[in-house]
C-alpha cells in the first residue's frame, strides 16, 4: 500500500534556515544540513527546501546547501523558490535535488513547465500553486499575462461557481486572474509530475489546510497532490489526507518547534487508519 507522505518544509535564506527550528542536540540550529539529517532520523518521507534568498548574488548558496544535504541524507529532496530557467533546474538536480518546485515562472510562461518536463522528466517537476479564495463582485480584471489569449478558458469569468480559487504569485500579493483548479489541470497536461498546493488564506494561521481547495484540485488530477498552508495540529494533517484528498502533507512550524515529532505524527495517523511508513 502506498503510504501518505509527511514532508517537513524548511525556509532557507542565504543558506540558513529561518523562522527558527527548535531541535535539541543540534550544534547549529540554523544549519539546513543538520536539520535535514534530524528529520531523516525521525522518519520524514521527503524534505522540501524553500529558498527565500532575496539577493541575486547569493542565489548560488542554495546549491551548496543541496549538495551537502544530498551527501548526508538519503531521501527525496525538493527545492523551490526562484526556479526560473532550465539552467536553474539543471544546477539544482546536479547538486543533488530530486525535484524542483516551479511557481511564478510557470505563471509567467506555462511553456516553461512543458519544456522542463520534456528535458528533465515529469518525475522531477513539481508545480507549486499559491491559491486564495476570491469573491467576484464585478467583472474579473483583464489579464496582463502575455499568453492569456492562448488559454482564455483558464481565467476567471463572471459566472464562476463558488468557491472560487484564484492563483496568486509573489507570496500571495499578486493576483493572476487564473482559476486554480483549471490551472492545475493545464500543468498536469504540460507534464508536471506533482502539484504543491498552498492556501494563501491559511498559510501561517494554524487553522488547518483549505480542504475544499485541495479536494477540488486533487479530484481533477491524476498526478499526486501535496497539501500545504495552515497545518497546526495532527488532526489537520489527517483532514488534509482524508477530506482534502492529499497524497502528501507538508508542514513547517508544527515539526520545527517540536510540537510533534514525525514519529508521533505517523503513529497518530496510523491509529486513524491512514497508510503511513513507520
Amino acid at each position: 500500500m502506498l503510504a501518505k507522505r509527511i514532508i517537513p518544509c524548511l525556509d532557507v535564506k542565504d543558506g540558513r534556515v529561518v523562522k527558527g527550528v527548535n531541535f535539541v542536540n543540534l550544534r547549529d540550529a540554523g544549519d539546513p544540513v543538520e536539520i535535514a539529517a534530524a528529520y531523516e532520523k525521525e522518519g520524514a518521507d521527503e524534505l522540501t527546501f524553500l529558498d527565500i534568498t532575496a539577493s541575486h548574488e547569493k542565489r548560488d548558496i542554495i546549491l551548496d546547501v543541496v549538495a551537502h544535504t544530498a551527501e548526508k541524507v538519503f531521501m527525496p529532496l525538493t527545492v523551490g523558490g526562484g526556479v526560473r530557467t532550465l539552467e536553474d533546474i539543471r544546477n539544482l538536480l546536479n547538486a543533488g535535488a530530486d525535484k524542483v518546485a516551479i511557481n511564478t515562472a510557470a505563471v509567467h510562461d506555462p511553456e516553461f513547465v512543458r519544456t522542463a518536463a520534456g528535458r528533465f522528466g515529469s518525475q522531477c517537476i513539481v508545480v507549486a500553486i499559491d491559491a486564495k479564495r476570491v469573491v467576484l463582485e464585478t467583472k474579473a480584471a483583464e489579464s496582463k499575462l502575455p499568453w492569456c489569449d492562448q488559454h482564455p478558458d483558464l481565467f476567471l469569468t463572471e459566472n464562476e461557481p463558488e468557491p472560487i480559487f484564484e492563483v496568486f504569485t509573489h507570496g500571495g500579493r499578486n493576483p493572476t486572474g487564473i482559476h486554480a483548479v483549471r490551472w492545475a489541470r493545464l500543468m498536469e497536461i504540460y507534464g508536471a509530475g506533482e502539484v504543491l498546493v498552498t492556501s494563501m488564506d491559511r498559510d501561517g494561521t494554524k487553522k488547518g489546510y483549505d480542504l475544499e481547495l485541495n479536494r477540488f484540485i486533487s479530484e481533477s488530477l491524476t498526478i499526486p497532490l501535496i497539501a500545504s498552508g495552515g497545518a497546526g495540529t495532527l488532526e489537520h494533517l489527517f483532514e488534509g489526507i482524508v477530506q482534502g484528498k492529499a497524497d502528501a502533507v507538508l508542514a513547517a512550524s508544527i515539526f520545527h518547534f517540536k510540537e510533534f515529532t514525525i514519529g508521533e505524527t505517523k503513529k497518530y495517523l496510523k491509529a486513524k487508519g491512514v497508510a503511513v511508513r513507520l
Partner: peptide, 20 residues
C-alpha cells in the same frame, strides 16, 4: 488508468510516487 484500492473508489494517482 482508473485502478483503485480504496473504498471510496478514488483512482490511483500516476506517477506512482512515494513509499510503498
Amino acid at each position: 488508468e482508473g485502478c483503485s484500492e480504496t473504498e471510496s473508489g478514488a483512482p490511483m494517482k500516476i506517477p506512482h510516487m512515494g513509499w510503498n
